[in-house]
């Protein structure tokens, strides 16, 4: 009697969150999977079931593969670099330096800015001839670069922006974790004769692993999710050099209005992100948490 009552209360308490999650997360996912199996309705032609046709198209689609490889490059560079930078900044701030609060704020500022605003700032930095970078390079006779217009440099240019924006955000997590480490652990390491590097390598870094895992998962998901700057700066060009997976989905869905194919692409992106999440909760989590 009492147990069933508790179950009712529990269920009612969970209901609001469950309804929201279902309506805005799970239902759309299922709908997307469903639509990915149908053709795109056009004019008087309604959608018809076409099975895995979209997925076959995808395998043959060079732009899709370009987007995948771009995104891999993008993730494999932005994630480790921004995390490394974040850790370095956190260590610097955590050491007792003067003007700590100021430095912390300065490092955090890029995170606070909206991506579109950042894109505008960097459009100026990257502008050929009169842009900041070209002006700095002029004395060396290296000006006249169209950083965003050149297929060779467009993606790296976006990668730099992402690192610049994300590092400050990740730094906050590292800083919080560093401040959690008991000072007596560091004193014990000092007493045993550990050098600063050994202390970092053998004590601090392993204790930061849960944070590193958490940040890396977020960073990887971010690398597949953050495309505002692509829209604002390059629109995927030149020659698809900066087309990332999510931007391609946006293009297919809302520029080409091929909603069926866009749904199929979305399913693939979701599958990738889900695999990453599974890796976190199923495997890495168990290996890294010490308590």
């Amino acid at each position: 009697m009492k147990a069933s009552r508790n179950a009712i209360y529990g269920g009612l308490l969970l209901l609001p969150a469950a309804i929201l999650l279902w309506t805005f997360t799970f239902q759309p996912i299922l709908t997307t999977i469903y639509h990915s199996l149908f053709s795109t309705p056009r004019g008087r032609r309604p959608a018809v079931f076409i099975g895995l046709d979209h997925y076959e198209t995808m395998i043959a689609d060079p732009v899709f593969w370009r987007a995948v490889s771009n995104n891999l490059v993008y993730a494999l560079t932005t994630v480790p670099l921004s995390m490394g930078l974040a850790l370095a900044m956190a260590l610097l701030i955590n050491a007792k330096i003067r003007g700590q609060a100021l430095v912390r704020m300065a490092y955090f500022t890029p995170t606070v800015l909206p991506m579109v605003a950042i894109a505008n700032i960097w459009l100026f930095f990257y502008a050929p001839d009169y842009g900041l970078i070209d002006q700095l390079l002029r004395p060396f006779g290296l000006s006249g670069n169209n950083w965003l217009g050149n297929p060779e440099t467009a993606l790296p240019a976006l990668i730099v922006i992402t690192i610049w924006k994300e590092a400050g955000f990740f730094m906050i997590f590292y800083l919080a974790a560093l401040q959690q480490i008991s000072p007596s652990l560091l004193e014990a390491a000092d007493l045993e004769g550990a050098s600063p590097w050994q202390r970092f390598r053998r004590v601090v870094f392993p204790l930061l692993m849960p944070t590193t895992l958490f940040v890396s998962i977020n960073a990887v998901i971010g690398a597949f999710r953050l495309v505002d700057h692509v829209v604002a700066m390059t629109k995927g060009g030149p020659d698809n050099a900066t087309t990332l997976l999510l931007f391609y989905i946006y293009q297919v869905g809302f520029s080409f209005w091929d909603t069926g194919y866009a749904a199929a692409l979305t399913v693939v992106l979701l599958a990738v992100l889900m695999l990453i999440a599974l890796y976190q909760f199923g495997y890495a989590d168990k290996r890294i948490h010490y308590r």
Partner: peptide, 21 residues
Amino acid sequence: SPASKRNLSMVFQSYALFPHM
């Protein structure tokens, strides 16, 4: 001298054991 050069050992109140080792 730094702590490591003093030729002594110490037991901390909180034990200061490394949780990951």
